[in-house]
Nucleic acid binder design. Structure first.
Length: 706
DNA sequence: CTAGGGTTAG
């Protein structure tokens, strides 16, 4: 893919309307506060919490920097007011950030380096003030103290050394650089509170904070998920009468990006650009990742366009984030083109590049591209690391490449133990996944047991895959055993695992029901009660509706449809009151979980049953037939062709639906015929009408029974 | 590594 040439003038967010919020400005808090008017820090509650990487619409629309878009910030207006002769917009006066970086001292090679490095290692066993006193009876030279401070690990040793240095010069405070170095160490140790108190100490005793101090504080806050404090310290830069330089600026850009506050991040970027900033690679990587996170393809295009405009050649990191972003935006073809472009530009892909590409091909089920790339990796001796190994295994799982995965897994097992390439829970999960989705429960189970023997902790996904596979083979006792082992080993039951247990409820016979219910009781007792309610003839629709709504509200968005699918299966398989399956389907439809199943054209009406469970597919089909019968009765115009699609089972989770649905249609003696393509069933109008008429006259009841 | 920013697995 070439960089896009049709460049629109500015980024228009795809998912968020701008217009609605641009009228209220009185309560907005400028990102670039006026120097004279120091503002109190924003309340922490104003920022989305850690658990919420995708803030609500209102969060995103909180017009923190929409003030920037409207250019109402006093600081931003001052240049033209103070300096009316400044009229060349192509060379704007820098107003929001420094055009240059903080100057750093050039380092002469210190002859003590080696000695100090050995010393820092010996101090790393224990480091008390006594140790420091013994090691340095004479005052330490400035540069040696700094080098040692920088090399002490973990953070508390550096911090203790810092305190010791402070105690050695009680009359004069340590210079900024000492604070900066120890702050870096505190960041590595994720000690934000301590870092912040040191920064406050600097302010208190008059040690100047510089851009290095601020950027370290901001990234430390970011790593500790204290985004509110990151923004607080960014505002502090302006309050102190300084301007951020491009490192500090990129750091805060990354904070907004991580918060998912995309408009504000873009506004920050554009404001800096407008004031003459020529960004380096970092902000593009930050923005690309931000857009990729939400699959915002237009956002990715915006990043490409900006780089193109600046005639900037992406480096490997930028390519990596762009490739990953395109994958997340569901554009495997564009990712492939961009990867080719990267090679054509003479860059060598690294582990992360290849991980991104293999992941994309696996998820898209582009088997040929995946295997082709794998061959090229080996032929070119491109670097491979542990994560790439595991990604290759997951790709094999996605594509059902059992033999390739086995070879790779063996390779990992034969690697040196020190290399950290021994299979871990991720690798085992991939193997369990391969065997599980290939219908080989024995091998999957063997993998799980082997994993436990080798002391590798199971994870929730591997356990879920295995339980699902054992469930499909109706090996309920094994499934229950695996569940209990997983729980004993500290697995936290997530919604997917709950859904998996729910599918066991649908599959097991009456004798095993209590064992499965006991598992589900540990995972989600509410579901156990709800299943009982569904089986109770006396339960009213309103009760079912309320309880289902509660359950779905508590559940993760992407398990809601699987939950309903499973519940429908349970109703049908366990002989619950026959209206129940239809009630769940109706409610699921009401909650928008089954939208887009029907397509009505003038020549053909189509029913898409892909990603439905067998029971849900049957129930949806029954409702469709009922609706069609009504249409016939009311003599509506019908098309010539009716088609149903179940999917061919290319996706491992939909395996079996085409087959099950085919025999179901045969049982019903329906006129639908599989039409060349697997999983595609077609009936002609006349055949369908006569079949529906005969069924409804012989049944006497409009409900189609199986 | 040598005081500060960006990229990898369901």
């Amino acid at each position: 893919m070439a960089f896009p040439t049709s460049a629109s003038l500015s980024y228009i967010p795809t998912s968020l309307p701008l217009s609605s919020s641009s009228s209220s400005s009185s309560s907005t808090r400028p990102v670039f506060p006026c120097r004279s008017a120091a503002r109190p820090p924003p309340p922490a509650a104003e920022f989305p919490s850690n658990e919420n990487p995708n803030p609500s619409l209102s969060d995103q629309l909180r017009p923190l920097s929409l003030t920037l878009l409207k250019q109402t910030s006093p600081l931003l207006l001052t240049p033209s007011k103070q300096n009316p002769t400044w009229t060349n917009p192509s060379k704007p006066k820098p107003s929001v950030l420094l055009p240059h970086r903080h100057p750093r001292p050039t380092h002469s090679h210190n002859p003590d380096l080696r000695r100090l490095s050995l010393l820092s290692r010996s101090l790393s066993v224990s480091s008390s003030d006594d140790d420091f006193d013994k090691a340095f009876p004479n005052p330490l030279p400035h540069s040696s103290a700094l080098l040692l401070l920088n090399s002490l690990r973990p953070w508390h040793k550096a911090h203790r050394f810092f305190l010791w240095l402070q105690s050695k010069s009680p009359s004069s405070p340590l210079e900024t650089i000492f604070y900066n170095v120890v702050l870096k160490s505190l960041r590595a140790g994720r000690q934000f509170s301590l870092a912040e108190s040191l920064a406050n100490e600097m302010i208190h005793i008059g040690v100047p904070l510089d851009n290095i101090t601020y950027s370290t504080l901001i990234t430390c806050a970011k790593r500790c998920r204290r985004f509110d404090r990151a923004i607080y310290w960014f505002n502090k830069v302006y309050q102190a009468g300084l301007l951020p330089d491009e490192v500090t600026y990129s750091a805060i850009l990354d904070v907004y990006a991580e918060l998912g506050r995309r408009e504000e991040a873009v506004a920050l970027y554009e404001r800096a650009r407008a004031s003459g900033w020529t960004p380096d690679h970092v902000p593009f990587s930050v923005l690309a990742k931000m857009f990729g996170e939400v699959g915002d393809y237009d956002g990715i295009q915006y990043v490409l366009k900006e780089m193109k405009m600046l005639d900037m050649k992406p480096n490997v990191v930028v390519f990596n984030t762009l490739l990953d972003a395109l994958g997340k935006a569901g554009k495997p073809g564009l990712a492939r083109n961009l990867f080719d472009e990267m090679l054509a530009a003479g860059l060598t892909p690294d582990e992360k590049t290849l991980t991104a590409m293999i992941k994309i091909y696996g998820k898209s089920r582009w088997g040929r591209d995946a295997l082709d790339l794998w061959d090229r990796m080996r032929a070119n001796k491109w670097p491979v690391d542990f994560i790439l190994y595991n990604t290759l295994l997951s790709m094999c799982a996605d594509l059902g490449l059992e033999e390739d995965a086995e070879k790779l897994f063996d390779e990992m097992q034969q690697s040196d133990r020190g290399q950290r390439q021994q299979p871990d829970s991720f690798s085992y999960t991939a193997m369990i996944n391969i065997y599980g989705s290939g219908g080989k429960p024995d091998r999957a189970l063997k993998m799980f047991d082997e994993m436990l023997e080798r002391g590798v902790e199971p994870n929730v996904m591997g356990s879920t895959c295995l339980i699902q596979c054992l469930g499909k083979a109706t090996r309920i006792d094994d499934a229950v055993r695996v569940f209990n082992v997983a729980i004993e080993r500290g697995i936290k039951c997530d919604d997917r695992l709950c859904g998996c247990l729910l599918s066991l409820v649908a599959l097991c016979d009456e004798a095993d029901m209590s064992k499965v219910a006991a598992c589900l009781e540990k995972a989600n007792p509410r579901l156990v009660r709800f299943v009982a309610m569904l089986g109770d003839e006396g339960a009213q629709f309103e009760e079912v509706k309320e309880e289902l709504r509660g359950i779905l509200n508590e559940a993760n968005v992407d398990v809601r449809r699987p939950f309903c699918n499973c519940l429908i299966d349970i109703c049908r398989n366990r002989g619950y009151p026959s209206r129940r399956a239809h009630e769940i389907l109706r409610l699921g439809t009401m909650y928008g979980l089954y939208s887009g199943l029907h397509t009505k054209g003038s020549k053909e009406w189509h029913l898409n049953l892909r990603s439905l469970s067998i029971g849900a597919a049957k129930t949806v089909f029954e409702e469709w037939m009922e609706a069609l019968f009504d249409s016939i009765e009311h003599e509506e115009t019908l098309p010539q062709i009716f088609s149903v699609q179940t999917g061919s089972g290319a996706h491992r989770f939909s395996q079996g639906l085409a087959y099950a649905f085919s025999s179901y249609l045969e049982e019903l003696a329906s006129p639908f015929r599989q039409n060349g393509e697997i999983g595609c069933f077609v009936a002609m109008k006349e055949d369908l009408i006569s079949w529906l008429r005969s069924r409804n006259s012989s049944d006497g009841d409009k409900q189609i029974e199986v």
